[in-house]
Structures are given as C-alpha cells and as structure tokens.
Design a binder for these strands. Structure first.
Lengths: 169, 169
DNA sequence: ACAAAAGTGTTACTTCTACACCCATGG
DNA sequence: CCATGGGTGTAGAAGTAACACTTTTGT
C-alpha cells in the first residue's frame, strides 16, 4: 500500500466490502494519537460514503444501527458519532439525500431519510412544501409496490450531482 | 518528531511562529496525494486557529490578505480557500467570533469581523438586534480610544468558551 | 462647521409552525 | 370495514429585510 493514497485505499476497501463504487464520498477526520493503537503512532484518515442501502451487497462485516453499536476497537465509536453529526448538518444545506435513496422514491421515503438522520419527526405537509420549493425533484411514473394503503406518487431527482443550497431545514 | 502527533506539532509551530497559545484551534483537512510533493507520498494534516490579530507577535513569516495571496508552495492555496469557507459556515452557528476579537470590543469591530469573513456588508441595526438577542455579550466600561467621531460603547463576551448555537446569520 | 462612525424603530414581507380531514389500497 | 400511509390548505407567529436621521466626538 506504499503507493496508495488514503482516499484510494478507502474507496478500494469500500468496494471490496460492499461491491459499491461511484457513490458520494467525503473525508471525515484524521485521528492521530500516540496511544490509540498498541502498535504505536498510527494515523487514521477516515471517510464516509452515502449509499442507498439496497445497493449494498455485503461481502464481509454486517450492518449495525448507528444508535446501537456493538463495542468497537479503538475510538471508532467517536469516529461514527462525529460522522453522524456532520451528516446531519450536510443534509441541511445540500441535496445529498439523493445518495441515500433509489432512483425513484416516494415522499415518504424521502421524509423518512431526513427524520432518521435528524433524529426527529417532521410535519408531512410542511416538509413537502419546503422540499418542493427547492425544485430538485420531478414526479415520475412507477409501479406502486406498497401494500395496505393508498399507493404513493414516485419522484426522482432532476440531477444526481452533489449541490450546495442556500439553506435547507 | 516521531513521537509527536500532528496536532501537537501544529500547536508547537503556531507557538514558535506567533508566540500564541490557548486559542481556538481545529483540524481542517488531510491532504494526501502521491504527487503533491516531490519528496513522494506526503500526508499533510492541516489545522486552523482563530486569533485576535493584535495578540500575534510574528517571529517569522508575514501576514497576507487571504484574498490576495502570493504564490504558494504545493496546494496551499486550496487549503486556505477551504479554511475560509469552513470558517464562514462556523461563524453562522457558533460564537467563535470571540476568538478574533480583544476582550473588550465595539459593535463596529464585531460587525466588521462578520463582514470580512462573510464577504458582504450587513445592516447595522439588524445586525445589532440579531446579535443582542443571542445574549452572548454584555456592555462594559472602557476608554474610548477612537478618534474623529462619537465614541462607541464597549462589549465583552459573557463566556469565552466555544459554543454551538441554533442558527446565526 | 465638517467629517465620520455610533446609535436607534417601524413597517412590509417572507418564512415557519401547528394543525385535521379525506383518499386509495390490501387484507 | 378496518388499518395504513398518502395527500392536501390555512391562519397566526416569528423572523427577516429595507430604510433615514440624530448624536458625539476630533480636527
């Protein structure tokens, strides 16, 4: 690995473990302490990726709910807590939710993504109004596969490129 | 330097070059590319500090206006542009301006700090109202040293600890 | 007397919040 | 017919933005 940048290494490992590539990906924080690893002075450059869960084919490891993590090595818990906080901020001034959703999705799914990451319930009507005003999505036709209730309209992002917005939530 | 973390190194260098310590200080970004330095694979962990300019005693180097930088080695310009952007965001949801001001300061100085970093003029009356509503500062007595106009009231931050606020500007 | 920054309120406009009912479907 | 999430509007509150004149000082 002598000739591999930390970013390339992270992308390679992500691909190896999940089969995923071409996703939104961002450097998170560099952890650097003399004591955090018994092997001595280890420098950890951490990254996070945003992925629609359904695109992930786990080859190794397992899913964990970030709010109920098992005990982890070193200071990995701190790393994840920091990532979540940053992600919460990001969703408030970017269009990055698109990374977490399939091509075609319902307003329910969209609102749900926000609610999970922000950790709070949002008002259905207000959410729809506010999000619609951003002009990021268009309605599309798709087969309703839900069950037991009125089928939802589907939407898709007009552009799936990361974008910074004025203000969000 | 084998036994010094990047953070400690940054603080040490800051102290060596400016005589300053105990200031707000934050990791910025880790630059890691195989080509950015002719010496090979160099990993640069960058930090930024917020300092009242008057507290700085330059022992080496010089001040530069971030908007008119001389040509710099490697990708240092990118590093600084990124720092400024992050700083702009930060000032909008923290009380970190206090780092850039002396103990006692006027509303003019306060507003000026915001205007420089946000890169735009703000309305005097609206700024005062909004900032006052945050209850971060109290008025204090101090000798007016200005000249040629009505002397300003002085203020001081009630607490000089970093603090995250709901929303700012 | 003049120049220069300090200080101060009101109004129109925009945005945010809270809130309740009917709809379409599957079981 | 029941349960479930989908879909829709309005009104009051809060916040934002725009704006002009008087004050106090030094020269």
């Amino acid at each position: 690995m002598k000739n591999e940048t930390s970013e390339k290494a992270a992308l390679r490992i992500l691909k190896e473990k999940t089969g995923v590539k071409n996703v939104y990906f961002e450097q998170l924080y560099t952890f650097d302490s003399l004591s955090r690893d018994p092997r001595g002075h280890v420098l950890t450059v951490s990254y996070f990726a945003l992925i629609d869960r359904n695109k992930i084919q786990l080859r190794t490891g397992a899913f964990h709910n970030a709010n109920a993590l098992p005990s982890l090595a070193f200071d990995h818990k701190k790393i994840i807590a920091y990532a979540l906080k940053r992600l919460g901020y990001k969703l408030e001034y970017t269009n990055l939710v698109f990374s977490l959703l399939p091509e075609k999705f319902t307003f329910g799914q969209l609102q749900n993504a926000y609610q999970i990451i922000l950790g709070k319930k949002l008002d259905k009507r207000n959410f729809r109004k506010k999000f619609m005003a951003l002009n990021l999505i268009k309605s599309v036709k798709a087969k309703a596969i839900d069950t037991g209730h009125r089928p939802a309209q589907f939407y898709a992002f007009i552009s799936r490129k990361p974008l910074e917005l004025k203000r969000f939530f």
